[in-house]
Design a protein around this nucleic acid. Sequence first.
DNA 1: TTAGATGCAAAGGGTTTGCAACGTC
DNA 2: GACGTTGCAAACCCTTTGCATCTAA
Lengths: 121, 121
Amino acid sequence: MRSTKQRNIILDIINSSYEHLDAYGVYEKAREKIPNISLGTVYRNLNSLENAHLINVIFDGSDKLRYDRNENHQHFICTKCHKIIDIYDLDFKNVKTYQNNLVMNYKIVLEGICEECQKEE
Amino acid sequence: MRSTKQRNIILDIINSSYEHLDAYGVYEKAREKIPNISLGTVYRNLNSLENAHLINVIFDGSDKLRYDRNENHQHFICTKCHKIIDIYDLDFKNVKTYQNNLVMNYKIVLEGICEECQKEE
DNA sequence: TTAGATGCAAAGGGTTTGCAACGTC
DNA sequence: GACGTTGCAAACCCTTTGCATCTAA
């Protein structure tokens, strides 16, 4: 993965933002630095940065994906307005509320390479 | 939420399946019971069943959503082939592998209603 | 030099939606 | 009878992709 001006700026935008931007939000911020950057470039870089584990994707329950710093923390996501709240102090025993947010359920996902895919190539 | 033949069958398909079907997969199975059911009806019911917390949505990293029983368990998701493996015995301390699957990272999401949305209506 | 990256625009495709007819309560 | 639900098809819109050009290494 080469280092390009576009890729560096996109990574910097995500690393310095706490807004959990979607792809278009990243695009808008990137245009402030590179006015003629294309949305396709933003999408391609978001994908490659995520594959390289340099950023994270969040599915917030809406129809678009959102992007986040690669930093050890968890999320509360509102199922009504899709707000994402960072959690740095998760106490996982009997979480019924987090701060003043009502927790209805939780999801834990382990991500990785399955047994079959490890065998390939 | 009314009880309809379509909705009952869709719920039954998900409750009796361990395949983590996507919407089209649910549609195909539903057509075996109701040949003229429409894909729109499947989508609408998947959404309303999920809002009612009767089923769960899984984002597997591909471009489509997948649906799952509402039962207390967790998932391993392969980032290459998007296979989903049910986890019933998660030991959350230092998970580097789950069975023979290589775990690269994990995500914990609490879902619920945020403080602001609780005030509305 | 050359393989990967970009800009542009069009295509793709999963999901949503408008509407008339239907079914549930 | 009122209103939620369905079937159908079209629209939506987020995301991907083909291609010529550019650029990092």
